[in-house]
Amino acid sequence: MLPDIVTFWHGSIDALRQTCLRSQVAAGHKVTVYSFDPIPGLPEGVGNAEAEAVLPHSFAEKLRPAEPDGSWRDWTMLQFSDFFRMRLMAQRAGLWLDADVLLLKGVELDPAKPYFAWERPRQLGNSVLYLPQNDPIVRAFEALMQQDELIPDWLALRHRLTFAMRRLRGKSNRLADIRVAIYGPAALTALARRADELQHALPKRSFYAVHAEPRLFFEPSDFSRYLNDPGIIGLHISPKGRGKAAPIPGSLYAWAAQRFGQRNTLSKP
């Protein structure tokens, strides 16, 4: 059986994410988006579950205070989701995929082993993530979430020095302020190395073939190499503000938007 796919979203959802969620359903997965409020426009077949029961909205205050109207600011959603996906792993909820991961085929995994891929030469991505419930990485995040300061014991020396300097200069007492991905890919990589789990990492092309170069997805090109490569399971898209833009004819995005329309599903072998 294919694993359930889970993710988190806060706010409205754009056309790109709708296309990606449809691709995940079309690949044969049960897909659930967790949120604090109902999300209008979720594709048919995508479930919507209450996020508060997984990780309370108030946890975001440990990252940074909300705006006067209560809305999140800056990087809060991204960093909150770094913790949210780990809490889902602790609850055995399924395979985490970011809402902007376009699946080209179903994801098969061994529930007893970690599942992730290299995003760049020395860093794992956490846009595609599965960890067993009692994995050391999950336990490390569970322990971190008990802290008020959210300062991990796996923090790299350069980040420790940056944080210390910011404190001395009175700029910030919150680790969350020094870098958007401080609890994301760098943390996952450090913990996977500590747990001797880097051996499980899939090659970069499995999910991150176009991640660093969004033009390969959004601009016209010969994208057949991505569709014909058996090593590519899906594509994590980095929208860079293009999520609401209409697909350009001849682009991989245009192909995906047509392929994964409301009624489209992947053909069965």
Rank of each mutant, 00 (worst) to 15 (best):
I39Q: 06
R259V: 00
Q262L: 03
Q199R: 15
P40C: 01
E119K: 04
L95A: 11
W118Y: 14
Y208R: 07
Y208V: 14
A256L: 05
T7Q: 00
F218E: 13
Q18M: 04
P114D: 12
D148P: 04
N264M: 12
V54P: 01
T189N: 10
A190Q: 10
D4G: 13
P40G: 00
S71I: 06
A112I: 02
I232Y: 03
P230G: 02
V46M: 05
K240A: 04
K268T: 15
H29I: 09
P136S: 07
A90I: 01
L16Y: 12
P203T: 04
P136C: 05
P185C: 11
M1C: 07
L150M: 13
M165E: 14
F141V: 08
D74Q: 12
L198H: 01
L227D: 00
I151D: 00
Q147D: 15
V210S: 10
A99L: 05
N134C: 06
A246S: 13
E149R: 10
S127R: 06
Q146M: 12
G70R: 02
D4L: 09
G241T: 00
P68R: 11
E67Q: 15
S206T: 15
P40R: 02
G47Q: 11
L161P: 04
Y208E: 12
D177Q: 12
E44Q: 08
G45Q: 01
M145E: 14
F84R: 08
L150G: 06
I137G: 14
L103W: 05
R263P: 01
W96T: 06
A53R: 13
M165D: 13
P40K: 04
M89Q: 15
G250C: 05
T32H: 05
L104I: 05
L155A: 03
F80A: 09
D100K: 02
G106M: 11
I13R: 05
A209Y: 10
N126C: 10
L175N: 01
I5C: 11
L97N: 05
L16F: 12
D14G: 13
R242I: 09
Q91S: 10
A186M: 13
I151F: 00
L21V: 02
S81L: 03
T7R: 00
W96Y: 15
G41D: 05
T19L: 08
